[in-house]
Computed example of a mutant assay.
Amino acid sequence: MQLYNKLSAKEREALLEEAGEDRLTLSFYQYAKIGNPDLFRNHLFIAWDQMEVLGRIYVAHEGINAQLSVPAKNFGKFKEFLDGIYFLENVRLNIAIEHDIKSFLKLKVKVRDKILADGLNDETFDVTNKGVHVDAKAFNELLEDPNTILVDMRNHYESEIGHFKGAMTPDVDTFRDSLDLIEKDIQDHKEDKNLVMYCTGGIRCEKASAYYKHKGFQKVYQLEGGIIEYARQVQNLKLENKFLGKNFVFDHRRGERISEDVISNCHQCGKPCDTHVNCANEACHLLFIQCEECAEQMSNCCSAECQDIAALPYEEQKALRKGKGNSNKIFKKGRSEVLKYKR
């Protein structure tokens, strides 16, 4: 019984290009009590592998968090499968505005301690006592209220290329880093201000809203479905779009344009740019913003040092990496001394 990927990313990419079939990029999450995450993981992998579903899925005792690419022809079957699982029936699917047949190249279903690395002890507060969910229209109205504090619950490399007008955008590397920092900044407004939060698809706000209510905030709101669903509602209902730039997404697209504004800059030359890339030196793999001109000049690398390494024959590159762990730069997305124009 196959419970793992047999094809490499390159092999899968070639097959997808050859088939040329439409695929839908989507995400969903659900907090639920899962007694045997390993068994559930295998159940998902077997079913979704047969449907040609690709993506990155985390399963834990507390629920599921999934980012997926589903063949358009199999979407009905996929939805029927989800509805057959009692805690996933009619679960909200955040379907991307832009689709790419190569948004994911493998099916990875992993068992984790948590579906979101939040660093919180869930036993210390009521995780079900969440903030008020609001749709795009109500969200826009809240933003017009002078008593609203708008907080971006994402990381620095996400908010750098796109965020809502007037939002607090914490300069953090991880979600867990943002929680205490935000509370410290707005602790004097626990009773008199509307605390309104948003993230990519909503999962971070689910936990954060309960955490802040536990900390004494009285008026807590969260954007239902996150930026992904907001963009869809704005488009379908012809609402004012208050989001500037791109929404960072965790697949091979790296970004989905919500407005034509370019609010960030190339980290190497400083010109307006909001295209995230990974350094071509696999030993570095740093995530950063790079314009087309710098990509050509630097051979898709973040530095001259990486450029020299990437130019070596593949076997020599492998020899240089042998016995070495991943560079911390991989996890310090966009933070490196070689990036002259990193904000």
Results as ranks from 00 to 15, higher is better:
282 E>H: 04
261 D>G: 01
121 N>S: 14
70 V>I: 13
65 N>K: 09
233 Q>S: 10
275 T>P: 00
80 E>D: 15
127 V>A: 14
103 S>E: 13
280 A>P: 03
95 I>D: 13
321 R>C: 07
144 E>V: 04
75 F>Q: 15
168 M>V: 04
113 D>M: 08
199 C>I: 00
287 L>W: 03
52 E>H: 12
150 L>V: 00
286 L>M: 05
216 G>S: 01
38 D>G: 06
21 E>K: 15
166 G>I: 01
338 V>W: 01
322 K>Y: 01
224 E>Y: 06
39 L>I: 08
245 G>A: 06
316 E>W: 05
317 Q>V: 03
59 V>N: 07
78 F>D: 10
184 K>S: 14
181 L>P: 05
284 C>I: 00
277 V>D: 03
83 D>Y: 08
83 D>R: 09
117 A>I: 04
173 D>L: 04
104 F>W: 09
292 E>Y: 07
304 A>P: 01
167 A>P: 08
176 R>D: 13
276 H>R: 02
1 M>K: 01
294 C>D: 13
253 R>S: 14
241 N>G: 10
226 G>M: 02
229 E>P: 00
197 M>I: 06
228 I>P: 04
272 P>I: 04
78 F>A: 11
129 N>C: 11
58 Y>D: 14
258 I>G: 07
269 C>N: 02
38 D>N: 12
327 S>M: 00
256 E>D: 13
106 K>Y: 12
225 G>V: 01
116 L>D: 09
312 L>N: 09
293 E>P: 10
231 A>P: 09
241 N>I: 02
152 D>F: 02
196 V>F: 08
281 N>K: 03
170 P>V: 08
